[in-house]
Simulated scan of single mutants.
Amino acid sequence: MYTGVVSPWARDRGLPILLLVLSLVALVLGIALLIPLLVWFYKLHRSDKRLPKLILAYLISAVTLGFLIGGLGQLLYDHTSVAYDTVRTGVWTMSTLLQSVLKVILCFGLVSIHKNLPIRERRNCLWLPLTGVVSVSIGLVLLNYWLPTVGSVLASVIDAIVLIATLYYFSYLVKEMSDETTS
């Protein structure tokens, strides 16, 4: 919607600087809302030794997968006859799927830390959200393939909704076992 409708409209009217300013305002607002939440969570759980390990594992996994997927895409483009658009779509698809899975695992770990519950022993709780996130991601990829203008905007909105739903699922719907207690 942005690239297909809003951006051409703004260019025709001579307003591209307005779009840049609005984007920067949205970025600053998002950061301003997120930083206090991160600081609160860190202050509350800084003594938990699992928190730095979880965040480090997430960052290393995300960066490593990014390099691997990007490198594979570059190899496919350089050494095969696969078209650039096909490689770009494949890289975007794999990145979307794997980043969604990593975000669900990170959410699970953060909620487990917040509720003072074991992480490894409770991994059986991950199957339903992971299945849902992969299904939604595949649906978004297909939608983006057929309707690229609407698909990219909808992908961002749906990604946020799925992330919030995942946090809700782990926080309120997954019950503790009888031998576990919440903090």
Rank of each mutant, 00 (worst) to 15 (best):
L34D: 03
Y84D: 05
V63S: 13
L163V: 09
D159E: 03
L72P: 01
S135F: 10
L38S: 05
I55E: 06
V157K: 01
V5G: 10
T93G: 06
S178F: 04
R13H: 14
N116P: 02
Q74V: 05
L54D: 04
V157R: 02
L130I: 12
V21P: 07
W40R: 15
H79Q: 08
A62T: 09
P52M: 08
H79E: 09
S7A: 13
T131S: 14
V63D: 05
L20E: 14
A165F: 11
K103W: 07
V91Q: 12
L65T: 13
V136Y: 05
S47C: 04
S112G: 15
Y58C: 04
S100F: 07
I69S: 03
T131F: 10
S183H: 13
L37M: 08
G73D: 01
L19H: 11
P16H: 06
L54E: 10
T131W: 01
E180W: 07
V101E: 01
V101D: 01
M94P: 00
V136Q: 07
F108I: 06
W92G: 13
S81H: 11
Y58T: 11
L29T: 08
D12N: 15
L106V: 08
L68F: 10
I69D: 04
I31C: 02
P148S: 06
S95C: 00
L20V: 15
I119T: 12
T149A: 11
L126R: 03
L22H: 02
L33I: 00
L147M: 13
L142V: 14
A10E: 05
K49F: 07
Y2R: 15
G14Y: 09
H114D: 14
L24E: 07
L140V: 01
V5H: 11
Q99C: 00
I158D: 00
K53L: 09
G151M: 11
H79G: 00
Y42Q: 03
I113N: 09
L19N: 10
L29Q: 02
N144G: 15
S152Y: 03
K175L: 03
L106R: 04
L126V: 08
T182Q: 11
A62C: 01
H114A: 10
E180C: 05
L72I: 14
L147A: 15
V111I: 15
L68A: 12
L65Y: 03
F108W: 09
A160D: 00
Y168D: 07
